[in-house]
């Protein structure tokens, strides 16, 4: 039997009268990409934030590697192995690309409280940062300040930082948004390669990418999961067609 890494049980979150997440059950198994799709405002990002611990659920629980995370702060969840990227790039904008990655490597090593040695002379930090830089094709951009990066490059850097943490599960909130067809192709290839190492919960609007990558797909509409199934099942579901895919469906 394939091991379940992450499991959400009856997760609910209300913003005032709005039920952003309504009794969501979902799980992520070792070796799979589980895509979460749904129209704008369906509550996908809210779900990711609850898993990451940024938002406290009103009801339900998040289980990660069998442990209930409800009382675990977000920083501890990261240390436990939950890596993520943000829908809107969240980077240290005055740092260079390399420095952002060095920070990520530092987080992975859990060796932050070093006060004397210059980080620019920290060989292990630089080597590992360089490795993750190359993994995402950012070599050559190493000394560029993040504020000078293109949108696509920022998305790549986000991914590189998430991978530098060597996560046991990855939460990706629209990694393909706005990176262009070439970028989408590269990101799709990368995720396809990655899933053997780390299971991925993928929030994505790009249906071609989702159908190409996902082992399972869950459809979120108005905070509720209306269906979970394979690409085939989702594509052929009249319910999903009506609620979401509409004319986009192939």
């Amino acid at each position: 039997m394939v091991e379940t890494v992450l499991s959400l049980q009856g997760l609910s979150k209300n913003f005032g009268a709005l039920a952003a997440n309504n009794e969501v059950n979902l799980d992520l198994k070792q070796g799979e990409i589980h895509a979460l799709i749904g129209p704008n405002g369906a509550g996908k990002s809210t779900l990711i934030k609850q898993i990451a611990g940024e938002i406290t659920p009103d009801a339900g629980a998040v289980y990660f590697a069998g442990q209930n995370l409800n009382a675990v702060r977000s920083v501890k969840r990261v240390r436990a192995g939950l890596g993520r990227t943000f829908q809107v790039s969240s980077l240290i904008t005055e740092f260079t690309v390399e420095q952002n990655l060095m920070l990520a490597v530092m987080g992975a090593q859990q060796r932050t409280f070093r006060f004397f040695k210059r980080f620019t002379q920290d060989a292990t930090l630089r080597q590992q940062a360089q490795h993750h830089l190359e993994q995402l094709g950012l070599q050559g951009r190493s000394d560029v300040r993040v504020s000078q990066l293109s949108h696509g490059e920022r998305r790549q850097l986000e991914m590189a930082m998430a991978l530098a943490l060597k996560p046991k599960a990855l939460l990706l909130d629209e990694p393909m948004a706005g990176i262009g067809p070439g970028g989408t192709k590269e990101m799709t290839d990368l995720l396809a390669r990655l899933k053997a190492q780390v299971p991925i919960l993928l929030v994505e609007h790009d249906m071609a990418a989702v159908f190409a990558l996902a082992d399972r797909i869950s459809v979120l509409v108005y905070g509720r999961i209306i269906l979970t199934g394979t690409a085939e099942e989702i594509r052929n579901s009249p319910q999903v067609q009506q609620a979401y895919l509409g004319e986009e469906a192939p």
Partner: peptide, 10 residues
């Protein structure tokens, strides 16, 4: 960016 720092486990 404290949010980013947190998401790196720091």
């Amino acid at each position: 960016n404290p949010q980013r720092v947190t998401s790196l486990g720091i």
